[in-house]
Each structure stands twice: as structure tokens, then as C-alpha cells.
Design a protein around this nucleic acid. Structure first.
Lengths: 250, 250
DNA sequence: CGATTTGTTGATCTTACTCAATAATCGTGG
DNA sequence: CCACGATTATTGAGTAAGATCAACAAATCG
């Protein structure tokens, strides 16, 4: 039985739901309940759709592996990339209010996700106060991140935007114990540009310039951070302490 | 006793907390509990601060009257306006996650607000499932609104941004039973520009041009919408049905 | 292996920013 | 109540950052 619980904790982590439970020290029993609720193992291929704009909202999702792009399409058919979601991150939270998805979620590459039925999550979070607390925090975090993006979009230059974007990715990869100073971008230049409010050509030129200045090295979608201090300076951001250490060690 | 409950409901509405309870048909008793929790009647003057960047997060707030500006200040001292909050709207939700305010909230004009202590709200929302549901929706709505702003900032021209902004204000005033086609802007051109990612001069010019084209009339901070169809077209948005009716009637 | 998508680079153009001057309004104290 | 300074708004001229258009190169996919 103890073994069984441990297994569940591990599964829960694998399924990227540590964000939902571990930080607040839920008991094995509570984690078990959460664990049983989750529908696992949806494997996706590139361009597979998780949910589509206009569909009724049923579940929120956690990325287990791969990367997901969330975007909306205007009546004129133009795409607006809302965000990219990496392993351990949760998406679909914006649909809770209206009960209808305002966005489409699509796999950028081979990916696996977990589906968390919202009605059952709501019930469980009512029974388990720590889960409710965690849900509030999760929603609040999404708000804060969106507001940071506001700053980026309304005040920063092309190079500042791209620098911030890369640093943000590095930090997120590191949080998931992946290399923060060399990674493969799961999205195209067009997606990056769309997300950052820039033309593809501008993104491409910014990459080139940053490479020429010895800040990063780019080969197609492979990026490595060569000079993190300069990258932080360009992004007009403090270099996070924990990221600093990891980069120093390498 | 019944009278007393009715009084509380009314107070609750006045205090702009209908957003938190009425839509989900809470019982009088539940509303009463909520009502007792709320600290009322903080009257604010222009430039009074509700909470400051860096302070420990204690409460969320609802606007009862007037208008609140929420903004963050960069290490370089530059201001970034995050949002404007009008009667009936709730602010401070972004601080839940980190337990520290990332923004400052300041009164744009004489205002009154209600303070809702977060720890007590959390407890009560655990006891009252409908309140938990409503909290999730509230947080989700904020996310959706921030994502709409993303679209505005990354894809729209100056005139489109200002048109969207004015339409959005009109809709919000209408929801609070205030005139949607003639209102006084509580914020300066500088604040509008900061929020929309534009220079003050660009905002001013956009106002002028829209007035010349007979879309709106502007006299300092007084705005009236003359041609809503054109305004919607400029904002690249569907004119919301309910707003349409009100404007037609006038 | 050819076709399509994706990425890079160059030239030109447009939008909105910056700088500057002026006007109008607001707030404050005499 | 008015006069003063300070803030806020408008308008003009010049500039710069990034968009658009276009051509081409490289990579991916069936």
C-alpha cells in the first residue's frame, strides 16, 4: 500500500501535476484521489488539436511531454498566438469563465498530455482545501504572466522581446530539470513573431544580430545561450539567481 | 430578519460584490456571511494608494465608485499601466500566487472601495461551493481579458487600439447601468498611451482623427460615441448586441 | 527526389516615436 | 475670486524602428 502510494506520487510528477499538489504537501490519500481523476496518456502528433475555439469547455490540461501552442483565430482568419506550454505547465484555464474555449490548442511536436475534467477538479478542490489554494495560485500566476507579456508587448524593442522570450524559456526548461542553456525551440519563427508581436523577418534579423554579438548561438531551431549576462541585459531583466548558478556551472 | 437579508443583498450590490455572489444564486444566508466579511467604506482621494508594489498581499478589492489604476514600476523607474478598474470590478488578483503585490493600485479620482481579506475569502469559498465556482470564473475572466489585450498590443494600429479601448469602456459602463455612449475618462492621455503601448502624442492624434471622421466627439476627458458602427469597424470587433440596442435607443 | 514549408537577407515604405513649441486646464494659495 | 505655476493636451517636423515586398536558400516531408 505504501508502495502503491509512492508509485502514485511518481506518476503524478511524471504527469506534470506536481504543480497541482506537491508544493502544498498534500497527503498520499489526497494525491491518490487527484491521481485517479486524471485521464492519462493522450499521445499527440504534430498539429493534433487538443481543443478547438468554440468547443464547450470540459477539462483543463497538463503537458507531460512535448509542447503545445494555444492561439485564437480572428473572424478574418488571422491567428494570434496566446502562449506556448511546456512539460509541467497547465493550459485551458481561460475557458473556465465562459465555459467555451476561446482558443485552439495544438501540438507543436509529438506530445503527451493529461486531461483533468474540470467538474471533478472543482469537486475535489472543494473537498481538499490545499487543492483549492493551489488552484487559486495557479490561476493567479497565469494572470501575472500575462501581465508581464503586456509589458513586453507595449514597451520593448524587437531585440528586448526576443531576449526576454529566450530567457523565459531557459528558466522554464530549468524548472523542469532540462538544460537551460541549450535547447531546441519547438515553435517556428512565424509563431515566435506572432506571439511577440513582430514580423517573421524581424525575428530572424534579431536572431542573427544576437548571434553576431556573441550572445547566443543559433542553428535553425537549436539555441544555446553563450553570454547570459548580456542576454539578461538585453532583456532588461535581473538574471534569476537559480538560473545564474546553473549557467555558471556549465 | 427577511428585511435584514434584503438590506444585505442591496448593500452587497452597492458594494459591487454582485460579481461575487448574485450570478450564482447564493442564499441570503451565504450572502450574509460574505457581506459580513467585507470591510467597507474606504474613501479615497485622487492619487491615494490602495496597495503598493512589494507589500505583502492581504486582500483583494472591489471598486464601489470612482476608478483605480493598477501599474508596476520597473527598476529604472518606468511605469507600466496594467489596467483600469471601474465600479463593480475586482482587482488585486495577480498577487495571490506570490503573496506579494507586484503592482501598485492608485485612485485616479475620488473613489470608494471594499476590501475583502483573502484568507477569510478562501475559508468562506471552501464552505460555500458556489463562491468557489465564482472565484474560479473571476480569475479565469481576468486571464481572458489580459489575453485580449495581448491581441490588441501585438496586432493593432494606434487607431484600432484606441477604438477597442473606448468600446471596452462603453461596454463596462453599460454593464454597470451607466451611459455607454457618453462618459468622462477617469485617466489621462498619458495613462491611456502607457496602457495601450502608444506615445501620448499618438493617442492625442488618434482622438483628433476619430473626431474629424465623425466617429466620436471629444472635449478633454469627455467622450461621446457618435457613430458606433464605424467605431466597431475601426476596433475590428463585432458590436456587442446588448451595446448595440442601448446605443440605438439613444 | 521533388514539392512545400521554413528561414534568411536586402530594399523600400509606413507608422508611430521623439523632440519641440504652444495652448488649455487644473490646483493652490494669496 | 483670481493669479500663478504645474500639469495635461494638442499640433508640427523630423527620425527611426519595424513592416512589407521580394528574392533566394535551406530544411523537412511525403
Amino acid at each position: 500500500m505504501a508502495n502503491d502510494n509512492v508509485k502514485h506520487v511518481v506518476t503524478c510528477q511524471e504527469c506534470a501535476l506536481n504543480a497541482l499538489c506537491i508544493p502544498h504537501g498534500m497527503s498520499f490519500e489526497e494525491i491518490d484521489l487527484l491521481d485517479k481523476m486524471i485521464e492519462r496518456g493522450r499521445p499527440l502528433h504534430r498539429n493534433d488539436v487538443v481543443f478547438e475555439q468554440g468547443q464547450t469547455f470540459e477539462s483543463i490540461y497538463a503537458v507531460r511531454a512535448g509542447a503545445i501552442k494555444v492561439f485564437s483565430v480572428s473572424p478574418q482568419g488571422e491567428e494570434q498566438v496566446i502562449g506556448f506550454y511546456l512539460p509541467g505547465e497547465i493550459f485551458g484555464l481561460d475557458a473556465i469563465d465562459e465555459n467555451i474555449h476561446q482558443c485552439t490548442a495544438k501540438a507543436l511536436e509529438t506530445a503527451t498530455i493529461c486531461e483533468i475534467p474540470y467538474d471533478r477538479l472543482q469537486e475535489l478542490s472543494h473537498e481538499v482545501p490545499k487543492l483549492q489554494t493551489q488552484m487559486y495560485r495557479l490561476l493567479s500566476r497565469e494572470i501575472r504572466q500575462d501581465q508581464n507579456l503586456q509589458l513586453l508587448l507595449s514597451k520593448m524593442s524587437a531585440e528586448e522581446r526576443l531576449s526576454s522570450f529566450l530567457l523565459n524559456l531557459a528558466l522554464r526548461y530549468q524548472q523542469r530539470k532540462l538544460s537551460p542553456n541549450a535547447f531546441r525551440l519547438p515553435m517556428s519563427r512565424a509563431d515566435i513573431g506572432n506571439y511577440l508581436g513582430l514580423a517573421v523577418e524581424t525575428v530572424s534579423r534579431a536572431f542573427t544580430r544576437m548571434q553576431e554579438n556573441g550572445v547566443i548561438e543559433v542553428d535553425q531551431r537549436e539555441v544555446s545561450i553563450v553570454n547570459r549576462h548580456e542576454l539578461c541585459r538585453l532583456a532588461d531583466a535581473e538574471c534569476p539567481e537559480d538560473l545564474k548558478q546553473t549557467l555558471d556551472a556549465s
